[in-house]
């Protein structure tokens, strides 16, 4: 029996959070999308800005967002805990979001998962199992920070991870000879002029 709770206990205490001037600018631009008095609608965007700045979302950042948006802190906590995209605990530099939904699983996500689990150290890599990422045509798929790495197998997964570890950024998209979702090895139809 597992104890469920949205409030993580074992996170480092962050006393203070402040938006950098550029990020504050970004947050204000998001708020300007909504009519006056409805600035709270920008909460998801503002939290995203905060998460990108800090790497994850400490409670201090949520409180800061609440202050900026003039809403009760609990309303921000509700949103931040509802969406799995908000990281309430510190994570590694790269967040590996491995899709294990049926199409990816049929195409071998178990091997991908295993490769990622071996790489996880909490500093460079963190792991999250996710539901369908919507790229089933290129299954199996892993989202690493903002990019999708597709058509993976155990070897190519390791190569991608090694590249990240070296500090490089491997090319996102299919890791086989394939242009986006087109057939492997080039087009097979509509080849004539």
């Amino acid at each position: 029996m597992s104890m469920i709770t949205a409030d993580p206990q074992d996170v480092p205490k962050v006393e203070h959070f402040a938006f950098t001037p550029e990020n504050l600018e970004k947050a204000k631009a998001l708020m300007a999308n909504y009519p006056p008095g409805r600035q709270a609608s920008a909460v998801i965007g503002v939290l995203d800005v905060a998460q990108r700045q800090h790497g994850w979302l400490p409670r201090a950042a949520m409180d800061e967002a609440a202050k900026l948006l003039d809403m009760a802190p609990i309303r921000v906590y509700e949103i931040a805990t509802f969406y799995t995209m908000f990281q309430l605990k510190p994570k590694g530099r790269y967040l590996l979001q491995v899709c294990t939904t049926t199409p990816c699983w049929l195409r071998g996500s178990d091997a991908i998962m295993k490769a990622c689990e071996e790489a996880v150290d909490g500093k460079t890599f963190s792991l999250q199992e996710v539901e369908c990422l919507g790229a089933c045509v290129n299954a199996p798929v892993v989202q690493i920070n903002d990019d999708f790495y597709e058509d993976l197998d155990a070897d190519s997964m390791k190569k991608v991870l090694d590249a990240f570890r070296r500090g490089e950024t491997p090319k996102p998209g299919p890791q086989v000879d394939r242009q986006t979702s087109a057939p492997v090895g080039g087009p097979t139809t509509l080849k004539s002029e």
Partner: peptide, 19 residues
């Protein structure tokens, strides 16, 4: 007093003050 809320989703939803 906006202090109570529902955090989490689905099976992990809970009524709490969070802090």
């Amino acid at each position: 007093i906006e202090e109570l809320g529902a955090t989490g989703r689905g099976e992990s939803m809970e009524v709490t003050t969070y802090v």
